[in-house]
């Protein structure tokens, strides 16, 4: 089975301080000063992919893993890590355009790439990533390809005859389906939240394979690249104030304070629990 796992590298936004949230031209925010990381949902997706391969190989079926990311050369370090973890192919589609709020463009690129290489039967992606927070890419990849999509997937296991057993969260329970590829799997809050770490020896032995670098222009037409968010344009951006106010509830007696707390703040909220 051929699996393509797509991932995105994002800035660790928790490291930004309040004064760093400055909106620049074109609603850009400079986050280049903070560390990068694999988008957490995508990190789960990559680990789940590796776990699947381990299990499938134990059952004697061959699995070929590819990893795909879209962005600049800086991301190659992550792709090398994936080689060290025994991904068979690591691909980067070079891009310098601002595609933060363009899941339509991103999903088109992925779908076109898949159509060209004709390979993967299974595409695994994290459900959302924390810059655009669009939460649409996996769904739209499925739409572009006309494949079914299982969202909120949390576990993928091999089943007989090239089938997959996929567990996914529904709003009121857990769905366990055995499905026939091709399919798109969108990873939700999976119990595996960390990607395993390759040893230095594996980095030396496997991490030096060449990364396949492709040009985004070959997968998306120029008109779309110039206007990637056609249909939903960003027109405003401002920081959200998360600071707690520490409002002291006044009253002359404990009873008064409790009354004040209950009637002004608690009563309505309790109803909603």
């Amino acid at each position: 089975m051929n699996i393509l796992t797509c991932f995105k590298i994002v800035s660790d936004l928790d490291l930004m301080s309040e004064s760093d949230w400055v909106v620049e031209d074109h609603f850009r925010i400079n986050t280049s000063f903070v560390k990068n990381m694999i988008n957490p949902y995508d990190e789960s997706a990559l680990e789940i992919t590796l776990l699947y391969k381990e299990q499938a190989e134990k059952l004697g079926s061959a699995v070929n893993l590819s990893a795909l990311t879209i962005g600049s050369k800086q991301l190659d370090a992550y792709l090398k890590t994936l080689y060290a973890l025994r991904f068979d192919k690591a691909v980067r589609i070079e891009n310098q355009h601002d595609l933060r709020f363009s899941p339509d463009a991103i999903s088109t690129v992925i779908a076109n790439y898949v159509k060209v290489i004709k390979k993967p039967e299974v595409i695994i992606l994290g459900r959302q990533s924390g810059v655009g927070d669009n939460a649409k890419t996996p769904l739209l990849v499925a739409e572009h390809l006309g494949w079914p999509c299982i969202s909120q997937a949390v576990k993928i296991e091999p089943a007989s005859e090239g089938l997959l057993k996929v567990s996914s969260m529904a709003d009121d329970g857990l769905v366990i389906e055995t499905i026939r590829p091709p399919c798109v799997l969108s990873i939700g809050n999976a119990p595996n939240s960390y990607l395993r770490i390759p040893t230095l020896k594996d980095k030396v032995n496997y991490g030096k394979k060449e990364i396949e670098v492709l040009e985004i222009e070959n997968y998306l037409n120029q008109a779309v690249l110039e206007q990637p968010s056609e249909g939903h344009n960003i027109t405003g951006l401002k920081p959200i104030n998360h600071k707690r106010q520490g409002v002291v509830i006044e009253g002359s007696t404990p009873a008064e304070k409790a009354q004040n707390l209950y009637h002004n703040y608690l009563q309505e909220r309790l109803k909603q629990l």
Binding site: S11, S32, V34, K35, N36, Q74, A77
Partner: peptide
């Protein structure tokens, strides 16, 4: 682990 974003 701290500086890979600018000092690879």
């Amino acid at each position: 682990s701290h500086f890979s974003h600018f000092a690879e």
